[in-house]
């Protein structure tokens, strides 16, 4: 029996679709397994996890919300850490966006002596992993008296190279004649930035806000070095401090870990487009 060309085409179409679909479903399952298994683990007693590790099977006889009840009972520092993280993330995001946009505006809209040298410095920072200079930076932080304070975390990153780069790229699309019109109307240079340019930058603020915010919320190494007292820790550092060889804190640790991810995932599901734009913002071409 012969098939019409069209019939062959639809059949071919469906086969590749099915194969692709299978591949992607398999990958999606593999990616979701860790989420699923850590969530199951958060419902099991920690002694069980210490003895058996985590698995995929649901055993209702030992599962309960006891861990979460304990987490919310206020006997742990978990929510102190949670609010520390929110505070640092908020302050860091707002400050970094403001300062970086300010600097980027200077780079994008003016020609001045030393501009190229300075912008090379921005690229220079972008290329150097902060970890390489963390030893002297740590000593500097001690000298400046910024240890164990959130400013020790925020200030070194306040003029972020990537946000500066990104904003400059964004601003280069705005014509300078536009600014001259504002100047004729008697606007000062800073008035132009705050009244005219900043509102125009809203979409780029959203993308960079997510980029900076996510980095700050999940930041680990530098806050671990700077923060000392246990009531000042951020969430990742606090959770990490619960990891002991004896595993006596595993119930709080695991459900705390799960609970720390939930708000981010909810935010992501609502603002998906902005999240993806923000977290892949580094991909903009120079």
């Amino acid at each position: 029996m012969r098939k019409t060309p069209k019939g062959i085409k639809t059949r071919k179409f469906s086969w590749t679709t099915i194969l692709l679909l299978l591949l992607f479903v398999l990958l999606a399952v593999l990616i979701l397994i860790p989420f699923y298994s850590i969530f199951l683990a958060s419902l099991r007693p920690s002694t069980e996890i210490m003895r058996q590790g985590i698995g995929l099977d649901i055993d209702l006889s030992i599962m309960s919300f006891d861990n979460y009840r304990h987490l919310f009972s206020g006997q742990t520092k978990y929510f102190t850490w949670f609010f520390n993280s929110i505070k640092i993330t908020a302050v860091q995001t707002v400050l970094t966006l403001l300062v970086s946009a300010f600097v980027a505006y200077g780079f994008a809209m003016y020609d001045f002596k030393g501009k190229n040298v300075l912008f090379t410095c921005v690229l220079f920072i972008m290329m150097i992993p902060m970890e390489i200079i963390m030893l002297p930076l740590y000593q500097l932080t001690i000298k400046l008296g910024l240890m164990d304070s959130m400013w020790g975390i925020i200030l070194p990153a306040v003029a972020g190279p990537l946000p500066i780069f990104f904003f400059r790229q964004y601003l280069s699309g705005i014509s300078r004649e536009f600014l001259d019109a504002a100047r004729v109307d008697g606007c000062s240079e800073f008035g132009i930035f705050f009244r005219i340019i900043a509102p125009l930058m809203k979409p780029s603020f959203a993308a960079m806000g997510i980029f900076v915010g996510m980095n700050s919320w999940n930041s680990f190494l530098w806050p671990m070095i700077v923060l000392r007292s246990s009531e000042k820790l951020t969430l990742p550092i606090g959770l990490n401090s619960l990891i002991t060889p004896y595993g006596n804190n595993y119930d709080v640790l695991i459900c705390g870990a799960v609970f720390s991810v939930i708000p981010i995932i909810l935010l992501f599901l609502i603002f998906q487009k902005q999240f993806i734009a923000g977290m892949t913002a580094g991909g903009v071409k120079g």
């Binding site: 860790p34 850590i38 683990a41 999940n218 680990f220 990742p236 720390s260 981010i264 977290m279």
Partner: peptide, 21 residues
């Protein structure tokens, strides 16, 4: 969306999960 989810998780949570796995 599913593929992007792991990027949202802090290394502490991811590391803990994979250590148990």
């Amino acid at each position: 969306s599913v593929f992007f989810l792991p990027a949202l998780v802090s290394i502490v949570v991811a590391g803990l999960t994979f250590r148990l796995i």
